[in-house]
């Protein structure tokens, strides 16, 4: 019942907005503002053909590689920094400094260093997506309940088993929250990196349409990004719900008592 209502809310607001949009633009609007029906058919024309393979897929590929690298590096470094005090002491100021640098600012530098290719775009994505995962992992590892740490000590859990059975599951709620943030950041960085220097990809095409004053096409690209964003976050939420079933149950039990 509750999920049904949630779905209704999810669907209702967009529908209302589309109707409003349709009503407001029905009698013709500015050249720069698209109409729903026109935009829809443009969307199908532009994206649901060959470009799915030549542009959308490469973009998603870069995003996926960037996110996977960020996750592996972020969790790996995060566990190390979070569990070894002197490493944390040593690296914390450096991390604060690096984090303050927006990764988009690195694009010109990376262009020079790496050139116009996929690697450069993945690096831009990683430079931005690493932080939420890294910082959340550090926090998650550090904030593990003292009593659980004592328990792990008492039963002499060390090394790999301790990592797999205690440290990572304990930090997983924060780690997954970090990954969720990274997905949003990654999508933005993907598009930005493709706008600067690319020969294919969603960002590249949107810029290209804009240069050619192909306004409805440009809008259709923006719609595509919106849809991708929603789908990625919804898909990730499903994964999160599965992995963190214990966490939601625990929270609910804590609220009840």
């Amino acid at each position: 019942m509750r999920t049904l209502r949630q779905i209704a809310i999810w669907v209702a607001l967009p529908i209302i907005l589309i109707i409003l949009w349709w009503a407001l633009t029905a009698r013709g609007a500015s050249f720069f503002v698209p109409q729903p029906a026109g935009l829809f058919s443009k969307f199908i024309d532009v994206w649901m053909g060959e470009r799915l393979l030549t542009d959308v897929l490469p973009s998603l590929g870069r995003l996926a590689v960037g996110l996977v690298i960020s996750t592996i590096v972020g969790i790996g470094l995060g566990v190390l920094i979070g569990s070894v005090r002197w490493v944390r002491w040593l690296l914390e100021p450096l991390l604060e400094f690096l984090r303050a640098i927006p990764s988009t600012i690195m694009i010109p530098v990376l262009l020079l260093l790496i050139g116009i290719n996929d690697t450069m775009k993945v690096v831009v994505i990683v430079l931005g997506c690493l932080w939420p995962i890294l910082l959340n992992t550090i926090e998650g590892v550090r904030s593990l309940d003292e009593v659980l740490k004592n328990t792990a000590d008492i039963y002499r859990f060390k090394g790999w088993p301790r990592l797999v059975f205690v440290t990572l599951p304990g930090a997983s709620p924060l780690i997954l929250a970090g990954i969720r943030q990274s997905i949003a950041v990654g999508l933005i960085l993907l598009v930005v990196s493709e706008m600067f220097a690319a020969t294919d990809g969603i960002g590249y095409l949107i810029m290209n349409f804009q240069n050619r004053v192909a306004i409805p096409e440009m809008w259709s690209g923006i719609v595509l990004l919106g849809i991708l964003g929603v789908m990625l976050s919804a898909g990730f939420q499903l994964i999160e719900k599965r992995i963190l079933r214990w966490y939601y149950g625990l929270k609910e039990a804590a609220n009840d008592s």
Binding site: T151, I154, P169
Partner: peptide, 30 residues
């Protein structure tokens, strides 16, 4: 050869594991 039951027992159980996994883990690690 030593086991300890802490005062904060509720917080000493791993919430991401079932009862049997909680009991099994020290045996498995050993």
């Amino acid at each position: 050869g030593m086991a300890v039951v802490l005062q904060e027992y509720a917080r000493s159980l791993f919430p991401w594991m079932t009862v049997e996994k909680n009991v099994e883990l020290p045996l498995r690690v050993a």
